[in-house]
């Protein structure tokens, strides 16, 4: 359905925006390395089914590969900045202070409690859903402390938020047309959307109302 495709495309757009900008400008200002690392973990644990070769469609398989590849590439590019611009890299690391063990640990426990089947694949899948729902927190934490957001960060988080928002009408659509209600995805998806709403709140309060920021 249209919501799902648009959702996937804005998800893809968010990663492309990030990738292209970092590649072109060699700037990582305002980007949380921890959030990016969490996304690599999210994609790798969610798309483990690629290894079973029970592929659903060309679209599904290609997108999964692109998401894993692009998220790894983002990390590579950030690491390259380390040698190119050590000062900027150090500055980013100094501000990227969120303790991710407080996210990974609880998500692992939640995956053990809430899953469809007690198999490695299903547990990893559930873990990835929980982790995705909170993976943006180090980024939001960084943003809320600095009160400044670069154009890159703003566009990136906006596209990500749009992807999450579009998945909600997709679930409603699928409920009515297919009778499908996948509770785990819906719950973690709503949780994630709530966190993004918080971003837009911070964005409004600190960035738009704050000084020293030019709207893109």
């Amino acid at each position: 359905n249209i919501f799902r495709i648009l959702g996937d495309l804005s998800h893809l757009a968010s990663i492309v925006i990030l990738l292209r900008t970092v590649q072109k400008t060699r700037q990582v200002d305002g980007i949380s390395l921890k959030t990016q690392l969490l996304y690599v973990l999210v994609f790798c644990t969610r798309y483990l089914d690629l290894l079973t070769f029970r592929w659903k469609s060309v679209y599904n398989t290609l997108m999964k590969m692109v998401f894993i590849g692009a998220s790894v590439r983002v990390i590579q590019l950030i690491q390259e900045c380390k040698t190119r611009n050590a000062v900027a890299y150090k500055d980013m690391m100094a501000r990227d202070t969120f303790q991710i063990k407080y996210l990974v640990g609880p998500c692992a426990i939640l995956a053990l409690v809430f899953n469809y089947k007690f198999t490695v694949l299903e547990l990893c899948w559930s873990f990835s859903l929980w982790l995705e729902s909170v993976a943006i927190l180090p980024q939001l934490f960084m943003l809320s402390r600095s009160g400044k957001a670069g154009t890159l960060t703003t566009h990136y988080i906006f596209a990500l938020g749009l992807y999450r928002a579009l998945y909600i009408p997709n679930w409603i659509w699928r409920y009515y047309t297919e009778g499908r209600l996948e509770k785990l995805s819906v719950f973690t998806g709503l949780l994630q959307t709530a966190l993004y709403s918080d971003f837009f709140y911070i964005y409004y309060k600190k960035v738009i109302k704050g000084a020293g920021f030019e709207l893109p």
Binding site: D8, F67, N170
Partner: peptide
């Protein structure tokens, strides 16, 4: 009990 659904979303 919840029946297992195919994970066909990204």
């Amino acid at each position: 009990t919840s029946t297992q659904l195919e994970h066909d979303e990204l």
